[in-house]
Design a protein around this nucleic acid. Structure first.
Lengths: 155, 155
DNA sequence: GTTGAAAGACCTAGTGA
DNA sequence: TCACTAGGTCTTTCAAC
């Protein structure tokens, strides 16, 4: 049991919706041998309680000209609250930055950058990322191939 | 223009559905000042042509006991097709591995690992990841805080 | 917590403009 | 591309178990 608030039915619903959120309540009720009203009630509660944050469409990035994914490791000059906050506030404004995590270890932040190609990445780097204050180093690694990319957590 | 197959309306639809795929065609038609029939036709085509890969529920990982995210950089002994293929085939079987990318640079793969806590990560590392053949080194970095985490590509 | 039923909203395909 | 139609499906609520 993951959480005292969730029973087996809740977990099964989350498993299904993580994989395919276009399933109707009717389809879920059939799979789980419950009534439609029960599924409806559970899904509503799971959304209200914040287990389900949002429902999104996942696009094929190669078809929308976002073929290049980079992971950029950023090291800052210092770690005052002010420096950290400023960096975070500014970096999340860039469209190309899909993710930003503060990390343990030999660098401060890891960014996932999505651009069309290396030229666009270079432009992002020179004209956006490198203009932010207090950056010591940026080390970038590029995705050669995608072996697995999943948004569903194991439950 | 991103792609000759897509016009402004298509792009706007993709932007909206990337953020919130629970929008009805009626709501989208109102936002974009188009008819429901047009939106219906476009969305259907965008799914058929593979622009929209799938629709998923994004869960709050902290509420489902997946609080710890690690990025692990893996270096292999050699880069024969056999070694690469074996590693990829095996590593994607692990539930904890949400993403696996082959990378340019000083290591071969980057993995995104989701576990409940450091103990669970350690168990994953010792009993699963480290048992795979031909691994030279694994360097892991842990997420301290999530500044931005988005599945939507800029369009 | 669960159920079935019922009303209303939405989807979907088709027609014609 | 749009407006309209109509049948079928789904959502949502509610009284009752």
């Amino acid at each position: 049991m993951i959480n005292s608030e969730l029973d087996t039915t809740d977990i099964e619903i989350l498993k299904l919706l993580q994989r395919d959120a276009s399933l109707t309540n009717k389809e879920i009720s059939f799979k789980l041998h419950k009534s439609i009203a029960t599924i409806h009630e559970r899904v509503k509660r799971l959304k209200e309680q914040g287990y389900i944050q949002r429902v999104v469409a996942i696009l094929n990035r190669k078809k929308i000209n976002r073929s290049l994914i980079a992971f950029s490791q950023v090291l800052l000059n210092d770690h005052t609250a002010d420096t950290l906050n400023t960096f975070e506030q500014e970096v999340i404004k860039f469209d190309e930055v899909m993710e930003c995590f503060q990390m343990t270890g030999t660098f401060d932040f890891i960014l996932r950058i999505a651009t069309s190609d290396m030229e666009a990445y270079h432009s992002f780097y020179r004209n956006k990322l490198a203009t932010l204050p207090n950056i010591t180093t940026v080390q970038s690694f590029f995705v050669l191939s995608e072996t697995k990319s999943d948004t569903a957590y194991p439950l």
